[in-house]
Nucleic acid binder design. Structure first.
Length: 661
DNA sequence: TGAATATAAATTTTT
DNA sequence: TTTATATTCA
C-alpha cells in the first residue's frame, strides 16, 4: 500500500484572505503598522518614534492574534507600567467588542517576576510567601546593617544608605561589578570599597535569611530560574504563544536577558521601542538592548514606524531639531500629515511666580477657546518644581491631578500602617518590627534591637507570646507583641486587619504628628483600597509593585472632579499625550539638572527627556523659564534657557515677551 | 555613661 | 519629611 505524506502548512490560519475579520486592518493601519500586526511567525523589532501609533499597533496585533483563534491568556504583554497595560487591554477589548482581550496575560516585568517566583520560589531556596521590599525598605535594611558596622568607622564618612542601595542596584541591573560602579560613579568612596562589598554580602544574607526580595532580586531570581533550569524555562515560556514587550528602550540588561530566555525556544517575541525616548538609565536601563536584539534573533524583522499622528508639523520640526543633536541613535525623521499649526512658544518669565501666573492665565484662555482641561498638561523635570504652580492653580480654582513625586504609600504614616501589616503577615520581617517599635514612646533604636534580638531567636519555633519575652523592656513593647500575635492568629479579611491596626495606630499617630487630621484622611483612603483584596499577601505585593500612581494630595478628592488638568514629572508622562503642553522650568541648571551637566551620558539622557516632554504635545507647546533664579545649593544664578532649546534655530519657534497690565 | 529626644540641614527622575 | 548632630535625661 502506498502512503503519501501530506503536510498542513503552519500558517494556513495566518492567511488573511481566507478569513473574515471583524476588524478592517487594511483600512485602519498604515502599511508599516500592518506589517507589524501580521508578522506573527518570527521575532519582530519595531522602532517606533514618538506618536507613531505604537500603542494602537500593539492593540491591533493582540486583536489580530485573538481573531486568528489564539487564546488571549497565551499572549504575554510586558509593559512598563500597569497603567499602560490596563489601558492597552481595555482598548483591545473595545476594538474586538468583547472582553476576551482582558484575559491577556501581562503586567510589568516585576509583577510578572513576582507571579512566576511565587510558584517556583522553592527551586531557589526561598519560601513562596516571601515579602517584597520597596526601595526605602531596602534602604532601611542596609541602614540597620550599616549601623552595626559603624562604631570603628566613625572617622571616615561612609556612603548614605540611599547611596549604598543605589550602588548595589546599579550593579545588579547592569550586570557589572560593584567595584566598577564605585570606581566610575562614586570615586570618593573607593577607599571604603571593602566595607561596601562586605555590607552587600551581609545585605544578601539578611534578605535570604528573612525571606525578603527587593525589586532587583525579583528580576535577578527570575533570570536565574529561567537560565539554570531548562525544563522549568520551557514550562514557563511554553505557556505563551506570543510575547510582546513595550518600551523596550527602558529595559535593563537583566530584563533583556529575561526576554531572550523567554523567546529562546519559540522565537515568538516582539519588542517595541524608541531609542530616542530612553530615559531610565539611572535605573540601569540600557537602550542598547534594542541594538542587541537583532544580533540575538538573526531571523527577526525590523520595522520602523515614522509617520507621526500626534503632533502638528510645527511641533515636529522643533522636536526633530531637539533630538538631532543626540549622539547615537537610529536615524529617523518623523513627519506628519497634519496641518502645520502654531510654532512652539518660548516664554521667558521674570520669576518663578510670573511663570506660574503665565501658565494659569494661558490655561484659562485655552479653556475659553473651547479646550477641555483634560487636554492640558504641565510637565517638569523634578516634582518639587511644581510647588509654586500648584499654589497658583489652587488660587485660580483650576483642578489638577499630579503624577510623580511623593506617592500615597511613601507617606510616613502609611508606611507605618504597612509595616504593621507586614509584620502580621510575616513575623520574621525585622524591618517592619523595627519601624513599628520605634513608634512607641520610650523605645529608640537600641531597645528596638534588643527586643528584635529576642524575638528572632524565638520565631524559628512555633508562635510567639508576649510573656515569653522577659526582661527589662518597656511595657508598650509587650503590648505591641501581643497585639501582633493576636492579629496573626485571626483569619479574617485584610480590611478587618487594617481596621484593627488603625485602632491601635491612631493614638500613636496623634502624638507623633501635629497635623494628624489630614493624615487620618489618607488612612481612610488606604482602608478603602484594602477593601478590594481577599488576601493580605496580594495586597502587600501590589502595594510594593503597583502602588496607586497618583500623588498623595489628589487621591481623596479625585472622583469629585470631572475635568482637571494634569501636572506631572516628565518621567511619569511617558506614553501620554495632550492637546496643549507646558514645559516649565526649561532653565539650564534645572532642565537639564545641574547634576547632569558634567557627565556626557547623563546629559544625553536629559536631552531625550526634553524630547519626550515636547513630543507629548499635539497642537500647542509652551516652554517657559524664569530668568532670575538664585540656586541656594550651588550659590549660582541661573539665567539661560535650557541648552536643548538654545540649539534650535530661531525659525522653528516663537519668542514671547511678557508684559504687565 | 548610654540612650531618648530636641534641633538643624538638605532634598532628581521610578519599578 | 527625613537624617545627622547636639543636648538632656535617667
Amino acid at each position: 500500500m502506498d502512503t503519501k505524506k501530506y503536510t498542513i502548512k503552519k500558517d494556513v490560519v495566518g492567511e488573511p484572505e481566507r478569513r473574515v475579520f471583524k476588524i478592517n486592518y487594511e483600512r485602519d493601519l498604515n502599511p508599516d503598522q500592518l506589517e507589524v500586526v501580521r508578522t506573527i511567525d518570527r521575532p519582530v523589532l519595531v522602532i517606533a518614534g514618538a506618536g507613531t501609533g505604537k500603542t494602537k499597533t500593539l492593540i491591533y496585533r493582540v486583536a489580530y492574534l485573538v481573531e486568528l483563534g489564539g487564546n488571549p491568556q497565551s499572549i504575554l504583554l510586558l509593559t512598563f507600567t500597569r497603567k499602560a497595560a490596563n489601558e492597552m487591554l481595555k482598548r483591545a477589548a473595545a476594538l474586538l467588542k468583547s472582553t476576551s482581550a482582558e484575559q491577556v496575560s501581562g503586567g510589568t516585568f516585576h509583577s510578572f517576576a513576582n507571579m512566576t517566583l511565587r510558584q517556583y520560589a522553592k527551586v531557589l531556596g526561598y519560601g513562596e510567601q516571601f515579602t517584597i521590599l520597596d526601595d526605602s525598605d531596602a534602604a532601611d535594611v542596609v541602614n540597620l546593617l550599616r549601623t552595626r558596622l559603624k562604631p570603628e568607622k566613625k572617622a571616615q564618612r561612609f556612603p548614605k544608605k540611599e547611596t549604598l542601595v543605589d550602588i548595589y542596584s546599579r550593579a545588579e541591573n547592569t550586570l557589572t561589578k560593584i567595584e566598577e560602579i564605585v570606581f566610575k560613579e562614586y570615586p570618593r568612596f573607593i577607599e571604603q570599597i571593602d566595607d561596601i562589598l562586605s555590607l552587600k554580602h551581609q545585605f544578601d544574607d539578611y534578605k535570604r535569611k528573612y525571606n525578603l526580595m527587593d525589586y532587583d532580586d525579583l528580576l535577578k531570581n527570575l533570570r536565574e530560574l529561567l537560565g539554570q533550569n531548562d525544563s522549568l524555562r520551557k514550562a514557563v515560556a511554553g505557556k505563551y504563544s506570543h510575547i510582546m514587550v513595550d518600551e523596550f528602550q527602558d529595559t535593563n540588561r537583566v530584563q533583556g536577558e529575561i526576554v531572550k530566555l523567554l523567546g529562546q525556544d519559540r522565537h515568538n517575541v516582539m519588542v517595541v521601542g524608541d531609542d530616542a525616548q530612553s530615559i531610565y538609565s539611572f535605573r540601569g536601563a540600557n537602550f542598547k538592548n534594542i541594538f542587541d536584539f537583532p544580533a540575538y534573533f538573526p531571523d527577526c524583522r525590523i520595522i520602523k514606524l515614522t509617520e507621526n499622528y500626534r503632533s502638528t508639523q510645527g511641533i515636529l520640526n522643533f522636536t526633530n531639531k531637539v533630538i538631532d543633536a543626540a549622539k547615537e541613535k537610529y536615524e529617523k525623521e518623523l513627519y506628519s500629515r497634519k496641518k502645520a499649526g502654531e510654532k512652539p512658544a518660548i516664554v521667558a518669565a521674570e520669576t518663578e511666580n510670573v511663570q506660574s501666573k503665565f501658565v494659569v492665565q494661558r490655561i484659562l484662555e485655552l479653556r475659553e477657546a473651547g479646550s477641555t482641561l483634560n487636554d492640558i498638561a504641565v510637565l517638569f523635570r523634578s516634582s518639587y518644581l511644581s510647588f509654586d504652580l500648584e499654589i497658583e492653580l489652587t488660587r485660580a480654582n483650576i483642578p489638577y491631578v499630579k503624577f510623580g513625586g511623593m506617592k500615597l504609600v511613601e507617606a510616613a504614616h502609611i508606611k507605618d500602617v504597612i509595616a504593621f501589616l507586614r509584620v502580621i503577615e510575616n513575623p520574621q520581617d525585622a524591618v517592619g518590627w523595627h519601624r513599628i517599635l520605634l513608634l512607641h514612646p520610650g523605645i529608640g533604636p537600641r531597645i528596638a534591637e534588643k527586643v528584635l534580638d529576642r524575638l528572632t531567636r524565638r520565631t524559628g519555633s512555633a508562635e510567639m507570646k508576649g510573656e515569653e519575652i522577659e526582661g527589662d523592656i518597656p511595657s508598650s513593647a509587650h503590648d505591641l507583641i501581643s497585639f501582633i500575635a493576636g492579629e496573626g492568629k485571626k483569619s479574617v479579611q485584610p480590611i478587618d486587619k487594617v481596621e484593627s491596626v488603625l485602632r491601635y495606630y491612631k493614638p500613636l499617630m496623634q502624638s507623633k504628628y501635629d497635623d494628624y487630621p489630614k493624615r487620618e484622611k489618607d488612612l481612610e483612603m488606604f482602608a478603602s483600597i484594602a477593601e478590594r483584596y481577599r488576601s493580605l499577601q496580594n495586597f502587600l505585593a501590589d502595594l510594593a509593585l503597583e502602588p496607586p500612581t497618583e500623588s498623595v494630595v489628589d487621591l481623596g478628592e479625585k472622583d469629585r472632579k470631572e475635568e482637571q488638568i494634569t501636572i506631572s514629572t516628565v518621567h511619569s508622562a511617558k506614553g501620554l499625550e495632550w492637546n496643549s503642553v507646558f514645559v516649565i522650568w526649561a532653565l539650564d541648571g534645572k532642565f537639564p539638572t545641574m547634576y547632569a551637566t558634567d557627565d556626557d551620558d547623563a546629559l544625553e539622557e536629559e536631552r531625550r527627556l526634553m524630547y519626550v516632554a515636547c513630543t507629548r504635545a499635539k497642537e500647542n507647546l509652551y516652554l517657559t523659564y524664569p530668568v532670575n533664579v538664585y540656586d541656594r545649593e550651588s550659590g549660582r544664578i541661573f539665567t539661560k534657557p535650557s541648552r536643548f532649546i538654545e540649539v534650535v534655530q530661531a525659525e522653528f519657534y516663537e519668542k514671547w515677551n511678557l508684559d504687565f497690565e
